[in-house]
Nucleic acid binder design. Structure first.
Length: 578
RNA sequence: CGGGACGUAGCUCAGCCUGGUAGAGCGCUUGGUUUGGGGCCAAGAAGUCGCAGGUUCAAAUCCUGUCGUCCCGACCA
């Protein structure tokens, strides 16, 4: 390939609407162009890298025994109604109408479609286990697309769905995908590691996310330095708060006292009241699937809504409005408490940190008053004790006892064991050895292909541009003749190397532009080709060319050895990635 | 959906406060020069100042509305 025969529109200046390095470089290196918010066109170099990530994923899926299919993006709403997600996922569903005004859904994911397929095609335990995958476009009505390809309205995903006869067999399928994911990210040159994850709207009970550590990531990862524990903060737990909750039994009964204008934990902890946050009870009112519930936490803890969703088993939770709170409890936010005035049919959830708590202070359910000397288990009708709090840095790891740390990460993959949620709803069954009809046990496995591509850039760049792993670079080698006159020595040799390397299966781009050396060097470094071969009159006079690895130092090579040396360099670099 | 910032040439931006002939750098075109790290000189093309109203003799500039972009939050399979 010749540089002048493709489209590589590099930019000297940073586009104003790109915030993070990888997004800026996608634009500056001419890999993509924005059509509008959250929608991008892939240009030739971006497309080549995208195809390489896809190919790595495809090879590893095939190796793991998964079967490639391709499902429609346009889907009938009926299967979404059947699964229940027409409602629960409505916020991200794009809906379109045809000329007869019938509604269709643009698929944000494909559990419904694959399960419908399996319901029709899988009838016997002899057909199981099986695992179908596809690489295709997903549509999600994101509230806020951002960071280029990281969170887009339309993106490319590899999704796989396993079907098994039993829970144990499903775990084996899950483990195969988990292992394949490790290989995939390693081959992409990415440092990605698995963390325990919340299962969210997809449902299920066992899940890991693959995270690329990056300050610009949108997830908080809680991890233990022992290496034995890592979890998304939505899922993470610890041995509890570092400071003990008050638990001395004074025998005193709850006592109402006036706190005019005091409506925050912080205000109550300040003079004149001076009640430390950890000795307060935070009373939150939520609506879980239209059911009003109370959630009690220690005053200095933060509610983890993902845990609330999981522990209550609700499909949706949201904070109650002030009007709903007033109607149910007769007080305003800031003066709420669960000691008195809670309707008998209202479930009261409490966090474990409050178990055994005595001498606590909480709202009196009367504006302008609080209660002191509250013993949680004596004075409050708690329906259910659960872990609802958000873990904080420094708390102790449940297994190792070491202090936990938190860092940011980009989620590039996610594996779930789903169970029978979709097979029940969409009737995916098989007959077992005894002729009994059973539901298929499912798992689902996603990799954000476009996001992975950008994560590679986020992890691999320097001040000059992208530093591609050789496995996903748009071209492995860039030939840079410093003179491009057709019969000049540099150009003649460049053409010869280009043809020899291409014949040997090396991916080569020949920078045949009549530009000054500085421009060509800067561009090749911006786009990030792993190996550049400089062909200039000076070194050619000595019978040599220069090999310049991206981010490395120049190595002089005899002209007659150049082809073999380049091939060896590429092979060695690929081998390192596994 | 709440909070904030911003829409002026392909890109990055100035001009707006204090209304009066539309600007710079990069990029692009042409010519010259240069030739191992985005070189230099000269000439040139290119903008309904996001859009719609309003105020005014006169609006990029002031006012109102609207659309879009980016950031923070909420949300997130």
């Amino acid at each position: 390939m010749r540089w002048s025969q493709t489209l590589i529109p590099t930019l000297k200046e940073t586009p104003a609407d790109a915030e993070i390095a990888s997004h800026q470089l996608l634009l500056r290196a001419g890999l993509v162009r924005k059509l509008t918010g959250g929608l991008y066109t892939f240009l030739p170099m971006g497309l080549r890298s995208l195809r390489k990530v896809e190919q790595i994923v495809r090879e590893e899926m095939d190796r793991a025994g998964a079967i490639e299919v391709l499902m429609p993006a346009l889907q009938p709403p009926e299967i979404w109604q059947a699964s229940g997600r027409y409602e629960t996922a409505r916020d991200v569903l794009y809906k379109v109408k045809d000329r007869a005004h019938k509604e269709w859904v643009l698929g944000p994911t494909h559990e419904e479609v694959i399960t419908t397929l399996a319901a029709g095609e899988i009838n016997s335990y002899k057909q199981l286990p099986c695992n179908f995958y596809q690489i295709g476009i997903k549509f999600r009505d994101e509230i806020r697309p951002r960071f280029g390809l990281m969170r887009a309205k339309e993106f490319i995903m590899k999704d796989a769905y396993s079907f098994d006869t039993t829970d144990a067999a499903a775990m084996a399928s899950y483990q195969r995908m988990y292992n394949a994911y490790g290989r995939i990210f390693a081959r992409c040159g990415l440092q990605a590691f698995p963390v325990e994850a919340d299962t969210g709207v997809i449902g299920g009970n066992h899940s890991h996310e693959f995270m690329v550590p990056a300050e610009t990531g949108e997830n908080d990862i809680v991890y233990c330095e022992s290496g034995g524990y890592a979890a998304n903060i939505e899922k993470a737990n610890s041995r509890g708060p570092l400071t003990p909750t008050p638990s001395v039994d004074t025998g005193a009964a709850p006592e109402k006292f006036a706190t005019p204008g005091v409506v925050t934990i912080e205000a109550l902890s300040a003079p004149p009241h001076g009640v430390p946050a950890l000795a307060q009870i935070k009373t939150l009112v939520y609506v879980a699937d239209s059911q009003l519930i109370l959630v009690l936490l220690r005053g200095d803890d933060q509610l983890n809504e993902a845990k609330l969703l999981a522990r209550t088993g609700a499909t949706q939770v949201r904070p109650a409005t002030p009007a709903e709170i007033q109607a149910a409890l007769g007080a305003s936010p800031g003066s709420l408490g669960a000691v008195q005035g809670v309707p008998a049919n209202t479930r009261v959830y409490a966090d474990h940190a409050l178990q055994g708590a005595r001498g606590m202070t909480t709202g009196a359910n009367e504006d302008g008053f609080h209660l002191r000397h509250v013993s949680v288990e004596r004075d409050i009708r708690v329906s259910q004790w659960e872990d609802f709090r958000t873990v904080r840095v420094g708390e102790l790891c449940v297994s190792s006892g070491l202090p936990l740390k938190i860092r940011r990460g980009i989620e590039v993959g996610h594996v779930f064991k789903i169970g029978v949620k979709y097979s029940e709803k969409l009737n995916s069954t098989f007959l077992d050895e005894n002729g009994q009809r059973q539901f298929c046990v499912m798992g689902c496995y996603g990799i954000g292909i476009t996001r992975t591509l950008q994560a590679v850039i986020e992890q691999g760049h320097d001040k000059d541009g992208i530093v591609w792993p050789v496995s996903v670079a748009p071209f492995q080698v860039c030939l840079t003749p410093l003179s491009v006159a057709p019969d000049s020595a540099p150009m003649t040799l460049a053409v010869k190397l280009h043809d020899e390397l291409t014949a040997a299966g090396i991916e080569v781009i020949l920078d045949d532009r009549d530009e000054r050396p500085g421009v060509k060097f800067k561009d090749s470094e911006l786009v990030g080709f792993p190996l550049r071969v400089n062909l200039g009159e000076k070194s050619l006079a000595k019978g040599e060319v220069e090999l310049k690895p991206r981010g490395g130092t120049v190595q002089m090579v005899k002209v007659e050895d150049a082809t073999a040396q380049v091939i060896a360099w590429v092979k060695a670099a690929l081998a390192k990635l596994g």
